[in-house]
Amino acid sequence: MQQLLTTALGGLTLGAVYAAFALALCLIWRSTRIVNFAQAPMAMITTYIALVIIDAGHSYWTGFAAALIGGLLLGAVVERVVVRPVEGKAEINAVILTLGLFILIHAVAGIVFGSRYRSFPAPFGVRGLTVGDTSIALTGFGVFTVVAVVVVMGLLVLLFRYTEVGLRMRAAAFNQEVARILGVKVGRMLTLGWALAALVGSLSGLLIAGGSLVHPAYMDSVVVYGFVAAVLGGLDSPVGSVIGGMLLGLSLSAVSGYLGSELVPLAALVILMAVLLLRPGGLFSHHAERRV
């Protein structure tokens, strides 16, 4: 029972982070049909921005906010400078560019921040909370992680469902040409989409780093898990990505708790293969007939 609770709570926290990362991938995929491989190093850079600010003596929250704003700007800049020039050409061009960006940002981070491990603070305790006299696996920071992801997801749903800019963004994502003749400035919507995605990516970077160590490659394994989560839920569906992230977190936590942590990457890839074989559109895709 203790073991089950531990894996479930650990899985939930981990899942929230994967969910955020998968959501970032999904936002970009939906609007531009590009898997943004540079998502992880972009989040790494913004986490370093937070770290520099916090190390300079400012509060955790100042660094947190700066990283999110930095993510917003970085996403917009990447879309305008890197992706826009190949817009309208084969999607593989943009995908290769994001891979190049992955390497570039890595190298720059190594030069600017050094490649040693640095510890990143957490705003809440990273020791298990105690219920009665037993300590459980849920930490204060874990609770914050889940809450932060749920809040961000809720805000995005509100934005897309109930605001005019959200409607414009969805129209631009689903059908660029029709959106244009209806007066939607599609380019602006794509920039905004990348900016929001990078913001969510930055959040996942901050949540993974909290109470842990950062170095230029600390986000790289998350690329794999985040991608599996997004495919599991359906790359087309933001809600699916989040649920996919949660499911993946719980599954991997169970594998790690009951079978051994060395099997986690293997389990993730097995899940990926199973999804691609059985339901390539993902669990929550409405458009299984669309290309995958």
Partner: peptide, 28 residues
């Protein structure tokens, strides 16, 4: 004039075939 400014100027274009954005509701 760019296509996205035409609607504001009073020109509406109903394209051939799939002009409906099928993922959105009728009202949207």
């Amino acid at each position: 004039t760019p296509a996205e400014d035409m609607a504001r100027l009073g020109l509406a274009h109903v394209p051939e075939g799939r002009g409906v954005i099928t993922e959105l509701t009728v009202e949207e």
